[in-house]
């Protein structure tokens, strides 16, 4: 009797395992379809993309769009554009994650007067459409003499970003208060408590923030458009847009080719960081 039941359970396990994998595979196909389509598009001529909508595969595997696209604009190649993107997204991410976790700790673990008001101010910055603050912002950066440099794209990140502060706060608030009491009895300062206890415990949140931050800064288009004046300082997101000028000939193949290349760094960052995301953390020992 017992044996039969166990076998039944095992049977179930296997079935659900296969079923689970199948489900994940179907999901993966649906999720990945447009990227594959874009990849195929990078080998097609404009006519193949728009005239002949029913074929999925290109007529030939011609890498010339990668070559002509990589050549870039006005003598500046995509090598430079990608390098610029790395500088902006990389430094910006370091700044955003570091400053946001400090601020998040302040908001969630320090009791100080005016906390509610400052927190409201921070949420407020998430709610106003950027279109209407864009011009006053430009004027401020212009007065600071920063227009034409990458500073307006990087420095504000070092003053924390509302989304990440809020995100990390939610994680810090999940860490038991007993730790604080213990630290206070220990006599260690808040700064040490933050660095040695809280910081390691919020690693998943910080990793999540880093992935998002890199991706958004990599894709950001408005900032580079307004603040970068010389083509050799343009980022990849800005340069890709130039393939599609509505008043002249668009090069769709090159657009898709460079868009495909532009995905790779974000994917690599994701794969690299997700290791830390799922490797698990030591909170288990602290609770209960």
């Amino acid at each position: 009797m017992m044996n039969i039941k166990a076998a039944g359970i095992r049977q179930n396990r296997i079935q659900s395992g296969i079923f689970g994998i199948l489900l994940k595979l179907v999901g993966a196909v649906i999720m990945i379809y447009p990227v594959v389509w874009m990849f195929m598009g990078s080998f097609k001529s404009n006519y193949e993309i728009f005239g002949d909508t029913q074929t999925f595969f290109p007529s030939s595997w011609d890498f010339s769009k990668y070559v002509s696209g990589w050549a870039g604009f006005g003598g500046v190649s995509f090598g430079t554009f990608f390098l610029n993107s790395f500088v902006v997204a990389g430094l910006g991410t370091i700044g955003a994650v570091a400053s946001s976790s400090v601020v998040a700790f302040g908001f969630s673990r320090c009791k100080f007067r005016g906390r509610g008001i400052w927190f409201a101010c921070m949420l407020l910055t998430m709610m106003l459409p950027s279109q209407v603050t864009m011009i006053p912002k430009y004027i401020i950066f212009n007065q600071l003499g920063w227009v034409g440099t990458k500073l307006p794209l990087i420095v504000p990140s070092f003053t924390s970003e509302a989304f990440f502060v809020f995100l990390i706060m939610q994680f810090i608030r999940g860490i038991p208060m007993d730790l604080d009491e213990a630290a206070k009895i220990d006599g260690s300062s808040m700064a040490r408590f933050f660095v040695s206890i809280i910081l390691p415990l919020t690693k998943p949140a910080m990793v999540t923030a880093a992935i998002f931050s890199f991706m958004w800064k990599w894709e950001d288009f408005m900032g580079p458009l307004l603040y970068l004046n010389k083509p050799r300082t343009y980022t990849a997101s800005l340069a890709i847009k130039m393939f599609n000028d509505s008043t002249s000939l668009s090069d769709w193949g090159a657009l898709f080719a460079m868009s495909t290349l532009s995905l790779i760094p974000i994917l690599l960052i994701f794969v690299f960081f997700q290791k830390y995301l799922v490797e698990g953390i030591a909170t288990s020992g602290l609770k209960g």
Binding site: N229, K230, M242
Partner: peptide, 13 residues
């Protein structure tokens, strides 16, 4: 020093 971009963004800039 040159600045170039596609039509729509050009006017915003």
């Amino acid at each position: 020093e040159v600045e170039f971009i596609e039509w729509g963004s050009y006017w915003e800039k």
